[in-house]
Design a protein around this nucleic acid. Sequence first.
RNA 1: GGGGGCGUAGCUCAGGUGGCAGAGCAGGAGCCUUUUAAGCUCUUGGCCGCAGGUUCGAGUCCUGCCGCCCUCACCA
Length: 512
Amino acid sequence: MWQPANELEQKRWEKLQRLREKGIDPYPRRVERTHTIREAVAAYEAAEAAASAGENEPETVSVTVCGRIVSHRPQGKSSWAHIEDGTGRVQIWVKQDNVGPENQKLFNDDLDLFDFIQAKGTMMRTRRGEVTVLVESFRLLAKALSPLPVVKERRREDGTIERYGGFTDPEERYRQRYADLAVNPDVREVFVKRARTVNAIRRFLDNEGFLEVETPILQPLYGGAAARPFVTYHNQLKQQLYLRISFELYLKRLLVGMYDAVYEIGRDFRNEGVSRKHNPEFTQVEFYKAYIDYRDLMDIVERMLAFVAEEVTGSTTITYQGHTIDFTPPWERITLRDAIIRYAGIDYTQYPDAESLAAVMREKGKHPGPDSTWGKLVDSLLGSEVEPNLIQPTFVLDYPADISPLAKKKPDDPTHVERFELFIAGMEVGNAFTEINDPLDQEERFLEMGRLYGEDSEEGHPVDEDYLRAMRYGMPPNGGYGMGVDRLVMLLTDRPNIREVLLYPHLRSRED
RNA sequence: GGGGGCGUAGCUCAGGUGGCAGAGCAGGAGCCUUUUAAGCUCUUGGCCGCAGGUUCGAGUCCUGCCGCCCUCACCA
């Protein structure tokens, strides 16, 4: 059973007992509300506007509003408070003349910051010009036994807001996200924008004729990306299962099934390091469309992100960590080879094997990993030399075939594939290719990956025989795109850390 | 996993070279019927992350552990 942990909770618990002794239910069932706070303020401002037209006093606006007490300023026989609901914040004024001495005392002594109340009264404007509910009666809706961190704000003369105190420790904010959201409105705003982002992606794809589908998260075989999976087990079926690392192979099977264009928005799971840009579970959108290739995909992605940015922020130009980023199409397109020449000064086609490429990287002062494959070395050049420089949306295209086992080779160059990745603000945001639809080529590429990575590597692609069988029934030529939604939300909300855009980011467990 | 930083009151933070653990806000008592970081007077509140060690004496120095942040590695 809960016990007060400190003096603050002890006092609130005592107030709770006092209220019960007075016959007041601190957690009543029924609530009356005539207006949200935003509606109440709007109704009064409308009445004022109408009155000023006729130069009269505004008509009486009677409201019953509900919300959490976010400032509590008892002043003897007259008290002020602000209450907040999901729509806004309004000041209330409780006067002994209106509510009587007993209720005035109860408001002052037994109600606390962060309690929920219902207040009935008429709208007015104070001398200082703030729209306020002059309270006729009020009622406790829910007692808060634990105090939230207090954040105080003052509006300076110049209109800017000065904040005092606050709730800023990232660990506590993530572990107690409810408290973070309750006291930090800007955090609430992040997740409103996140919802709008997902919604805008969905609307865009729906309008483009894509069908939204859902595919298995628990999979007997994982694939579609090079990542280590989480492993789980179905007791009754006595079957080892993996949490998916991508949607790719299941979505492309649907093109065999004669859907022309499909997409899925959902969670992927990768059993790898966590960082500023990586959470073990993250949200992806992947879409596949028949009869297009990676050049068409670039056009779609440009239009999609310009649309999403506009819907979420009101503009196709955003600010991210001090950078101005412009989503207006068209975006820069550069081949991976040219990008690495430009930013690392190495033409990797001159070093066609891992040994020579590693050697030239060492000459340039880089530190290639010891047992890297050639493809991994190219990828590391991209990650460390190129990626940080790509601030504006940039498509990097035409990747080496041996790090891209699902992408179709270029017609004039079998060492490279029709693939691009999208980089924004120095982050990889999207990945796409002209998909292999030749089942024999695909099988060979799976086997090749197996040879490169070795039988026991978890990063290698397990050969998905059922996927190959599907492809043998005939798969239309198609292009597919995958994008990390969390990273896009980071961009659109100007957050430097993926945890800031996840309601409940993964944290190590801790004894409380 | 490696390197660096951090952990002090409910919250935000101070606490040179080891020497009585502090402030603001929140909380409590009192005054206060147009306040808005309300104000004024008084006041409560501490496992200094945890466990060891050095020392006459440790919030401070050392070691280990836990957690978070940054970074590297890993990661299409």
